[in-house]
């Protein structure tokens, strides 16, 4: 089984996100970047598949040179090789433009399965995996929490999170699956893994190597346009209800819920 894991580099979830004064983007100075947490489940699952069936794990990642650190994280966890799509023209793309570049990069590679995180925690679009499947013409399943590959490696059974329950699906391979928390516990890279990762093959491709034109990817090739970013309104401070015991405080709470919050 050869598995490709699409990985995105995102700001650490604890980062203080500030919007540029003109609202065009967020301020990226001083941001600490990490691997998108949902993609970590993908990498872990791919490694477990490799441990069970053999084959290889490839990390596929798009972004400027800073994303190499995230690629190395995946390689340190145990992936064998990586493809890095690095071209200024690729920047600013939405899920569609990104999926297009990823699909192009997958041409000419042998693989049986593509894993993506269910969404990236920066823009939370939750579309890239599905769009990629569509562009590749493969089946897809989203939000998987369990993955069982058939012994012949031709199909898989997946458990997908759906509202109020689980959907158990059989998919033929190759397929694109998006991974969700609960699928596994991503491993912590060992030190020999970290050291080895520095020497693993990393194939950097620019637009020319992908054979795409600049207007079909990145901002130019996107279906959606970000017009303006604004930070969410600041939350008002909470209210502490003062009083002696529940006899006094509960009626006050009820009154506030009814008159101020208007929820009961």
């Amino acid at each position: 089984m050869n598995v490709v894991v699409c990985v995105k580099q995102v700001p650490d979830t604890e980062s203080v996100i500030k919007v540029k004064p003109d609202g065009s983007d967020i301020i990226t100075d001083d941001l600490k970047y990490v691997m998108n947490p949902y993609d970590e489940y993908g990498v872990e699952e791919a490694l477990q598949i490799k441990e069970k069936f053999g084959g290889s794990v490839t990390i596929l990642c798009m972004g400027p040179s800073r994303v190499v650190e995230t690629i190395r994280t995946g390689l340190a966890m145990g992936a064998d090789k990586a493809i890095h799509l690095d071209d200024p023209a690729l920047e600013g793309g939405d899920a569609f433009a990104t999926a297009k570049a990823l699909a192009e990069a997958l041409k000419g590679i042998e693989y049986d399965l593509v894993l993506c995180g269910k969404q990236a925690v920066d823009d939370d679009l939750s579309q890239t995996g599905q769009t990629l499947a569509e562009l590749l013409g493969f089946p897809h399943a989203s939000l998987i929490q369990k993955l069982e590959i058939a012994d012949d490696n031709k199909s898989a059974t997946v458990h997908c999170q759906v509202e109020g329950g689980l959907a158990v699906l059989d998919v033929s391979l190759p397929a694109v699956l998006t991974t969700q928390k609960g699928l596994n516990e991503p491993r912590y890279a060992s030190l020999p893994g970290i050291m080895k990762a520095k020497k693993k093959p990393l194939d950097t491709k620019d637009l020319a190597a992908l054979g795409l034109s600049a207007d079909s990817v990145g901002c130019a090739g996107s279906k959606t346009i970000i017009t303006k970013m604004t930070p969410p309104p600041e939350r008002a401070a909470g209210k502490v209800i003062e009083g002696e015991g529940p006899q006094e405080t509960v009626p006050k709470l009820v009154q506030l819920l009814r008159e101020e919050a208007k929820v009961i």
Partner: peptide, 17 residues
């Protein structure tokens, strides 16, 4: 470990704060 790596503190609170 990850908190120390990413935010330089074991609690994992944003390093900038």
């Amino acid at each position: 470990f990850k908190n120390m790596e990413n935010n330089s503190n074991p609690w994992g609170i944003g390093w900038a704060t």
